[in-house]
Design a protein around this nucleic acid. Structure first.
Length: 955
DNA sequence: GGGGGAAGGACCA
DNA sequence: TTCCTGGTCCTTCCCCC
């Protein structure tokens, strides 16, 4: 019964959850009160104790709620539940399978036994394996003092001052475990290892065969190795047969090897085992003992649940068989304490205890009540237990569902240390993932505070990730969010872990795109989802769904606006990333941009492809290699008329270059810039202009110059092709800007706009006096830097972290003037910022004119759907741009929620459910999965309909 | 208001 | 001075219908 606060099992006022768990072999008949007092005295006042107290109170509250619920149960509910239980019980009974012979084998005090075997001096001493902080296991001498696994060493020392604590040596245990598993495999090649020292086997098939075996196959010889330990050579030659003088150092009295032996013709001792299940298991344990000098215990039963309980029955070094008949099972279950059943721990035990349920027979008696108080899963489990049912099918080769790594340490508060550790963990995890060729979509950061409070923060990506950079990109943002949430206080950690889950399916496991070739190719063939960088006339119908999109890709509001304004309503007047373009779903664009960013990050991990030239490679049809002017190789197109694909390997590019290509590649799908198969020109992958040549040398020179222009933040084309005048793109842009009329400076506007699309660093002003620092007064930004990981500040916005910085030394922050940004890097002299918006400070709220011009209707922003108090297109466009740029910025930032209504980031301490740490933005339904911006906070919702409306765009 | 996805957390071995 | 890892289930929040 819940007592609230602390509960006592002995009247001393200690936490029951911290009391000794003597539910383990070798711990019977201990003085629990005395041991518990020592445990409490050692723990009281510690942070651990305080946390346990908190947990205990939570469990007590659960119990109180449960009891309250119980008090309100009606007779009607009970009778209905009764009928339900009876029906299910009947169904389960009909399906009871007693045909399999399942064995659970558990090595006795495994780690301790291995250490004792290797150091016989420990044989008669109480010893444990672990450290002063935590013990992994203890031997049976130590258990008599109450020392057991999962107990801190310092407390164990108080219980048993003579305790010898041996450090763990997992390599050794793994090696021994491998030997044991070799034996298991002879009885069930598909056995299921649960840990290094535990496994389930289905020996039904083995028994079937065994019945026909001659005695010789069931005969095993004893021999002694050079350490004096008896060993058997399984069915092999006896190298040295010596009389067994005694048991191995860690064998127990009822060792299978101590059974009477026969002598073979050569005078060696042999043991013959029978054909039944007990004999087969005894033989298995015998062979394990002979092979490793360690003993094992086993349980034989018709299902896994019972086998597990049975293996504990005659521990150590014993076995127990539960006959495969219903009555035997029911009798066995009757008096079995619920805590003995795998899956019922201290909390469940306590909750059941509050209902007066301590044994499995009680479970059966109270099933009706349990159906009304526990979840369906829970009471189904209870019902199975009460009937002695369990799995008869050992699930082999089950798919791994997650992989993680974590580390416990002394208090860690320094940011650098935390991020450094975070990166290390990501690195370790990436290596582990690589070993199993796994990629996962969900990255979870686990933090344990110094007060033992555990927090997990997860983020699900649109595509599976596996590399250090990819993992760190997410983990560090999650970490940063937590740090920000407690700021200015430091985040005081004692554990950090990183986990990856939601592993990719077989299809997703295909190697990540090495290039944007598919991206380009697909766009060329799928105009419906093509991003039109040119500014076309409004479309009237929704374009077809892009592949993978479940929602219509056009923004109805936007279409409506455009129609209503006869093509003049919203002209995306800024350069850079244009979202909401005709025929383009903003979300799908953002998704692709983000996905591409991840791919690019992934490619950083890969070495440059052989044959790449400056990271660019042009392929058309089957390629042959040729040497380019730089002396490296490139592929010469053999057939320019078939399967034209522009392959841009990113491996040799900097992050900034890659980002450039991410967007320019996108731009390449423009109708005005796409490569037309069948022409004698090649399309530059940098500027996406057609270069009127098929001569590789000429083309390479062009690309080279383009590339250097982009890299240097300029578009200093000097090629003749580049100086031939405005490209088709520019003309399109110009048309859109001027409405078809050529005006003074229109061409320049077009050029500027285009160059911004291509991430020209227009607007940056280099402050040479600041050394590596670049300052700019600017509006919204996207980043470009060769080292990435920039915390971007935009005017009026809080910093938004966009990417990963391997070196961690790039920073962008506001200068003394709130409208200036400072970009700096200690290691990279070429840090660059690319503008998505014209230079110059921009107001962060939509500037409203004194009074609206009444010559036309009010305009509604397609992003926030707020009616703007203006019909002035310049002002209106500025507002739309602000909204959209924030979407883009936010999207690429990935994690920081942006309040679109106020155009400011939400308060760092965005606390929900009174959690001390901010939750990672919650994902919504599949429409927003992964890439789309997280929903706004409650506050943001209260402030305006921004999120709802942007979401509706894509429905 | 219910269904269902996502995330956090508890529990267990 | 109280582990590490991986799994399942429950609760809560949120969006959508």
């Amino acid at each position: 019964m819940a007592t609230g606060g602390t509960s006592s099992s002995s009247g001393e006022g200690f936490l029951s959850r911290m009391a000794l768990n003597d539910n383990k072999a070798g711990m019977e008949g201990l003085n629990r009160d005395k041991i518990n007092k020592i445990i409490m005295d050692s723990s009281k006042g510690s942070r651990f104790y305080e946390n346990e107290l908190k947990k205990e109170q939570q469990v007590n509250q659960r119990i109180e709620r449960m009891m309250l619920q119980k008090a309100h149960i009606t007779e009607q509910q009970l009778s209905k539940a009764q009928a339900q239980v009876e029906k299910i019980t009947s169904d389960l009974e009909r399906g009871r399978d007693l045909s399999r012979v399942i064995v659970h084998v558990d090595m006795d005090a495994f780690f301790a036994a291995v250490e004792t075997r290797d150091c016989p001096d420990l044989m008669d001493k109480p010893m444990a394996v672990g450290s002063m902080s935590m013990l992994s296991t203890s031997n049976y001498h130590a258990r008599k003092f109450g020392v057991r696994a999962a107990m801190p060493g310092f407390i164990a020392k108080k219980l048993c001052p003579n305790l010898v604590i041996v450090p763990t040596n997992f390599d050794k245990y793994r090696a021994v475990s491998a030997e044991v598993r070799e034996v298991f495999a002879d009885y069930d090649p598909h056995f299921l290892p649960m840990s290094l020292d535990e496994a389930y086997l289905d020996i039904s098939d083995h028994l079937e065969q065994r019945r026909g075996w001659p005695e010789a196959l069931r005969t095993h010889r004893l021999h002694i190795n050079n350490t004096g330990t008896a060993r058997v050579d399984d069915h092999g030659d006896l190298q040295e047969t010596v009389e067994v003088e005694g048991l191995s150092p860690v064998l127990f009295e009822n060792s299978p090897s101590s059974s009477p032996c026969l002598q073979d013709a050569a005078g060696g001792e042999v043991e013959v085992f029978g054909t039944c299940a007990e004999e087969a298991v005894r033989e298995m344990r015998f062979r394990i003992e002979q092979k490793t000098s360690l003993t094992a215990s086993a349980g034989i039963a018709p299902n896994m649940m019972l086998a597990k309980v049975c293996s504990d029955k005659n521990k150590p070094n014993g076995q127990y068989r539960l006959p495969s008949n219903r009555q035997a099972v029911i009798d066995f279950i009757q008096d079995l304490p619920v805590r003995k059943v795998s899956g019922i721990g201290k909390v469940t035990e306590k909750m059941l205890g509050a209902l007066g349920i301590t044994s499995c027979s009680h479970l059966g008696q109270e099933m009706t009540l349990l159906t009304l108080l526990f979840s369906e899963k829970s009471w189904h489990h209870f019902l199975h237990i009460s009937m002695g049912l369990g799995s008869t099918l050992i699930e082999r080769d089950g798919e791994r569902k997650s992989m993680s790594t974590e580390r416990t340490f002394g208090e860690m508060s320094a940011l650098e240390e935390q991020f450094s550790l975070c990166r290390e963990l990501c690195q370790d995890l990436a290596q582990d993932l690589q070993k199993e060729a796994l990629k996962g979509k969900t990255v979870t950061l686990k933090l344990k505070m110094v007060n033992f409070e555990v927090k997990t923060r997860a983020w699900t990506l649109p595509c599976a990730v596996a590399t250090t950079e990819e993992l760190f990109a997410v983990a560090k943002d999650l970490l940063k969010t937590e740090i920000d949430n407690v700021s200015p206080q430091p985040l005081r950690l004692r554990l950090m872990g990183v986990r990856v889950s939601s592993f990719a399916s077989a299809d997703d496991k295909k190697p990540l795109q090495k290039s944007i070739v598919g991206f380009l190719h697909k766009k060329q063939t799928d105009s419906s989802s093509t991003s039109q960088i040119s500014f076309q006339k409004p479309v009237k119908e929704h374009p077809p769904k892009p592949p993978g999109q479940t929602q219509p890709s056009a923004c109805p509001s936007l279409v409506q606006q455009r129609q209503g304004q006869e093509g003049h309503a919203w002209v995306p007047s800024r350069g850079g990333v244009e979202v909401g373009r005709t025929g383009e779903n903003q979300q799908s664009f953002l998704q692709r941009a983000h996905a591409q960013r991840l791919r690019l990050q992934a490619e950083r991990e890969d070495p440059p492809e052989k044959g790449d030239w400056n990271g660019f490679e042009t392929r058309r049809g089957p390629a042959s290699s040729t040497t380019n002017p730089k002396g490296t190789q490139t592929h010469t197109p053999k057939n320019t008329n078939t399967s034209a694909e522009t392959h841009i390997s990113m491996s040799a590019l900097t992050a900034s270059d890659k980002m450039t290509h991410e967007l320019t590649a996108h731009a390449s799908t423009s109708s005005c810039c796409s490569t037309e198969p069948g022409t004698d020109s090649l399309t530059c992958p940098v500027c996406f202009r057609e270069v009127n040549t098929t001569e590789l040398t000429v083309f390479n020179r062009h690309v080279d110059q383009c590339l250097s222009g982009v890299t240097m933040g300029q578009n200093n084309h000097t090629d003749t092709e580049l100086e031939r005048g405005p490209s088709v793109c520019e003309e399109e842009v110009e048309k859109e800007i001027t409405g078809g009329k050529r005006e003074e400076g229109a061409m320049e506007k077009g050029r500027e706009l285009l160059s911004r699309c291509m991430f020209d660093s227009v607007g940056l002003q280099l402050d040479s006096s600041a050394g590596d620092h670049t300052e700019s007064t600017t509006g919204l930004l996207l980043y470009e830097t060769s080292t990435a990981n920039i915390s971007l500040s935009t005017v009026g916005l809080n910093p938004v972290c966009l990417n990963t910085c391997p070196n961690g030394d790039v920073s962008i922050h506001r200068g003394t003037d709130p409208n200036t940004l400072k970009v700096s890097s200690q290691s990279d002299p070429h840090v660059r910022v690319c503008l998505l918006s014209p230079g110059g400070p921009r107001p962060m709220t939509t500037p409203k004119p004194e009074s609206r011009d009444h010559r036309g209707p009010a305009l509604t922003c397609p992003v926030c759907q707020e009616t703007q108090d203006t019909n002035d297109l310049t002002l209106f466009n500025r507002h739309v741009d602000l909204c959209l740029n924030q979407e883009v910025l936010h999207e690429l930032g990935g994690l920081t929620s942006v309040d679109r209504t106020t155009h400011t980031a939400p308060p760092a301490a965005h606390k929900e459910r009174e959690q001390p740490l901010q939750r990672a933005p919650q994902k919504g339904k599949s429409k927003r999965r992964g890439l789309s911006p997280p929903p706004p906070s409650k506050k943001a919702k209260a402030l305006g309909p921004a999120w709802n409306t942007i979401d509706k765009f894509f429905r």
